[in-house]
Amino acid sequence: METEEEFNIVTTVNAEFIVLANENVRFQKILNDNISTIDGQIPFFFLKLKYPNKKFEKLSGSDLIFYICEKASKSGQKVFLLGGLEISNETARQKLKKLYPGLLIEGYSPPFSPYPFSKELNEKILDILKRFSPDILFVAFGAPKQEYWIEDHKLFLKKIGVRLAIGVGGTFELVAGIEKRAPKFIQTLGLESLWRLYQNPKRFKRFVRNFKFFKYIFS
């Protein structure tokens, strides 16, 4: 991974993102204006079916973080984990350091707050980021909060040296092992969201809402 002058935003689009994008013009514009990968077997299958002449890449945030951290450890680039639960943020950092010796990584888990954040909280986040000056920033606030925050602060992030900012939802919990990734055969069948619901029943409303994906993908 070579350092580049431009600043890029990556979104990992799953069924929830597609529902949100169809119901929220701002979120849709963020997805359209930036780099997107497909996170989820079912969206990947139906997008290929609907747009046979377009190229899609299936790459989840929980896969992407390992790939990028491995490359960063070899190139000397600095990585920052922003968001997630405090325990998962810390545990994920320790796990990534162990997997990739020499990785320059820090993180911060701010207290949960609706977006936009208070001036005091936002200034604290920006100050921590400025002092570390990461090359790569993973933001785990959940969609669409994480994408709004990145978009609203892209000039600041570019100024302090961030070259790549990625919204990754619940990835830190998966990296930390607080939530378990679905077995490969469940991922292949497109049932990973059901697996995560089994682990965390609080996801039920989101799980049901995401069925709107089928309405929008064929509209």
Rank of each mutant, 00 (worst) to 15 (best):
Y148P: 04
N122C: 13
F204N: 08
T11E: 00
R181S: 13
T188Y: 11
K184Q: 14
E151P: 03
E2T: 09
G161L: 09
S88K: 09
R196G: 11
R203V: 10
K74C: 10
H153G: 04
L137P: 02
A143V: 04
D33G: 02
G142K: 09
F156V: 14
A140F: 07
L104K: 13
K55S: 10
S133H: 11
G84I: 08
E90W: 09
F66L: 10
H153K: 12
T3Q: 08
Y148V: 07
F138S: 01
I9C: 03
I186T: 10
L189G: 12
I186R: 10
G190R: 07
K98R: 11
C69S: 10
V162K: 00
N14I: 03
Y51N: 12
I178C: 10
I217R: 00
E151I: 04
T3N: 09
R131Y: 11
V139L: 06
G161S: 07
T12N: 01
M1Q: 01
L126I: 13
D135Y: 06
Y67E: 09
F204G: 12
I35M: 02
K215Y: 12
R163P: 01
D33I: 02
Y67S: 07
L47Q: 04
I166W: 00
N34K: 04
G83I: 08
P110R: 10
L81T: 03
D39A: 03
L31S: 00
T188C: 11
K119C: 12
L137R: 01
K97D: 07
K205N: 14
D39K: 02
